[in-house]
């Protein structure tokens, strides 16, 4: 008869020990909104569940020299209620708050969304566009890596079995910067992205884009950063030409599959549409910041 052990360490080191002891058969629990569903469906059969919520700093948001540090088990609802975070990173917060439903928002986390490694994860394109990094803890200590280095393929991350993600860091924000995230779903909520697009921009005093990052979801085995799409915007005021170049770059980067949620053609086209629309929203937000 299969047994399931529950562990709730109070330090990161204890968590690493618990993971190491399980020899690859452990699962990390943050909000659990993916984990518990997978457990119930029988898709995963871990021997141990290591709950992060009792580790100091795992739940909550702190500001460090203009950066935001978000604990791995911080629920989406807490992000949405954090005024300073929502002002600095509206795109990351709106992406996180699109996950699931109001009830799910009470638990679902950025770190969990990232480590679930779905190519359609809503918060991940926004975090990648934002240039977010994450702090990974393991037996050899801590390392900080860009968010885009975490997912390796559907359901697969670059983390070792005895490593876990402790926190996510959003970098300090230059003035006149803003981000946005959009996704296409057939419904209006409680759905999964057919395509997602995150855009983060910085403008100079004249409204010229000086930095741009664009990331796309659900058009490749992982969420992808599209440097060509960002480059298409830099130096422009987001005129029609820049938007056309962005659209083309996003479409060129997309390498989706046809499945029950959409066709290759559809997803490719929508990648361009959403990149344009998200860029437009991000630009308006950045412009409105004096």
């Amino acid at each position: 008869m299969p047994q399931l052990e529950y562990s709730s360490p109070s330090t990161a080191d204890d968590a690493v020990r618990a993971l190491a002891a399980a020899g690859g058969s452990a699962k990390v629990l943050a909000g659990g909104t993916d984990l518990l569903v997978q457990l119930r469906s029988g898709r995963i059969r871990p021997s141990v569940i290591v709950d992060l919520k009792r580790i100091a700093g795992a739940v909550g948001i702190r500001e460090e020299a203009g950066a935001f540090v978000i604990g791995a088990a911080t629920p989406g609802a807490v992000l949405g209620e954090h005024a300073a975070l929502s002002k600095a990173w509206p795109g990351v917060v709106e992406a996180a708050n699109l996950i699931g439903s109001t009830q799910v928002q009470g638990r679902a986390t950025l770190a969990g969304n990232l480590c679930n490694a779905s190519p359609a994860a809503d918060s991940v394109p926004a975090m990648i566009a934002a240039g977010a990094t994450c702090v990974v803890v393991g037996p050899k200590g801590r390392r900080e890596i860009p968010v885009e280095q975490v997912p390796k393929g559907p359901g697969e991350t670059s983390l070792a079995p005895d490593e876990f993600l402790l926190e996510i860091r959003l970098p300090p924000r230059p003035p006149r910067s803003a981000d946005a995230y959009l996704r296409l779903i057939p419904r209006t909520e409680m759905d999964i992205a057919v395509v997602g697009a995150g855009v983060s921009l910085t403008l100079d005093a004249e409204g010229v884009i000086t930095a741009a990052r664009v990331a796309l979801g659900a058009v490749a085995p992982t969420v992808i950063l599209v440097p060509e799409a960002g480059a298409a915007l830099v130096g422009s005021r987001l005129g029609d030409q820049a938007l056309e170049k962005l659209d083309a770059a996003a479409k060129a980067a997309a390498r989706p599959i046809s499945d029950k949620r959409g066709t290759v053609d559809y997803r490719t086209n929508i990648a361009g549409v959403l990149a344009r629309r998200a860029a437009t929203i991000a630009y308006q937000r950045a412009e409105s910041r004096a």
Partner: peptide
């Protein structure tokens, strides 16, 4: 069947 759940069998939600 590829969509035996309410995620991919899309009944309308209230906001639709």
């Amino acid at each position: 069947m590829e969509n035996p759940g309410f995620l991919d069998y899309r009944v309308p939600v209230a906001s639709d």
